[in-house]
Design a protein around this nucleic acid. Structure first.
Lengths: 228, 228
DNA sequence: TTTTTGCTTTGACTTAGGTCAAAAAAAATA
DNA sequence: TATTTTTTTTGACCTAAGTCAAAGCAAAAA
């Protein structure tokens, strides 16, 4: 586990902590591996702790009775997930699945609570992370209820553009089917709208590579939903 | 402010704290009054602290460029809101407005952060509150993207039924226009669907009083979206 | 009480985006 | 490479729910 010392010390949850605490965290953490497609936890499960992703990508999602799924979030390296049951005392509100082969560190509930009780400063990092997550949810609700699919897609592409340090073309990190589920729509609709956006000269699409041709146009679409 | 000692000591945020800390909180808090319709904060503002509602009801919401609004949450007595900027260091992700004349206590950011740094109980309480809020958001996203309006309405009525200790008829605590906005739809659609549900013998509607006639039917509708 | 204002309902119409089916393309596996 | 499987695209069609307009009600203000 020693190899994760530096890794833990740099995660958003635990950055800025004294070495002694990092070491304590290292001692309580367990390494977990998941292969592509494997379920990490199910909605309704009692959480044994939360995870920090080391390698690979994880999706957290909800499913409807008729099998439709809505992705809530996709987590990559260094990102924590599954914290809700640790603090709320309730079950997981959603399920998690490995999108690729994954490695993660599991931090058991009891040990984390004790660590916070002994050291409230840690809690501030965690409060910050949860607050940012709340912020993201307000955006997702706004997108789902106040924007139409083209607007959501435009906003997402712009987000990726900045996330990938303004490189152009941008590269989708997930399949278009997964992207559809993240945007609250279905692959057919996503495909049609990408085609329409290409027709309008906003983007050029080649598999997972999307070249932004008209950034101002995308921004207008993302903000107002209109294209003129 | 002394009159709020007991009130603060019983809020979800601050329950379980020693009297000395409650007194400290009392000392840093400021009483605020808002009249019906008054804005409490705007999306994008820097938060000076968070609020705990004393009297009245507050809605937290997002608005689209063309004026449509989505209510994220409605807060009543004893409930905290506006915490996101305190911990995330960012601006308010949504706006807040008084739905009725309101009284609230404002807890300034700096003082709260200091209190948390020194007191693990508060930190854990706050983590619990934010986690529960995250849970609620997952439900809202699920509702918006995986359920149709009748299913969302049925789920909401059942929630009110339990919130109001299974009294029947239940009483809407907000106008139908506000309810529509909370459910991610518009008043016309809500009205039509309530009429349809009444036609199916699920409920009986009389202004803000809604009598549940077929609870199993409502539960089926809430879970599966179907009515047979 | 009367007047004004805001809330709710109803009707006619439109549309974004979903469903179903099938073909085409890409990726994974043998 | 060939073969199987998965993903993506396209077409025809359908429907939930939105828009617009108007009327009816209820609640607040004069």
């Amino acid at each position: 586990m020693e190899k994760y010392f530096q890794f833990i010390a740099e995660t958003i949850f635990f950055k800025g902590l004294p070495d002694a605490h990092i070491q304590a965290l290292l001692n309580i953490s367990r390494e977990k591996k998941f292969s592509k497609g494997e379920m990490i936890f199910f909605e309704g499960d009692n959480g044994e702790g939360f995870y920090i992703n080391v390698d690979g990508m994880v999706k957290v999602f909800k499913t409807s009775p008729d099998g439709k799924e809505q992705i809530l979030h996709i987590f990559g390296s260094g990102e924590p997930y599954g914290e809700v049951p640790v603090f709320s005392g309730k079950t997981f509100p959603a399920s998690a699945q490995a999108l690729s082969d994954c490695k993660a560190l599991l931090f058991p509930r009891q040990a984390i609570v004790e660590l916070i009780s002994a050291n409230p400063t840690i809690a501030l990092n965690m409060l910050a992370v949860l607050s940012l997550r709340l912020r993201q949810f307000t955006v997702q609700v706004e997108n789902l209820s106040l924007k139409e699919v083209p607007g959501r897609l435009a906003a997402h592409l712009l987000m990726l553009y900045f996330e990938q340090s303004q490189k152009n073309p941008i590269l989708l990190n997930i399949s278009k089917t997964q992207l559809a589920s993240l945007l609250g729509t279905i692959p057919e609709t996503l495909s049609r709208i990408l085609a329409k956006m290409a027709g309008l000269g906003l983007v050029h699409v080649q598999g997972r590579k999307i070249k932004i041709l008209d950034r101002a146009g995308l921004e207008l679409l993302a903000q107002t939903g209109r294209t003129e």
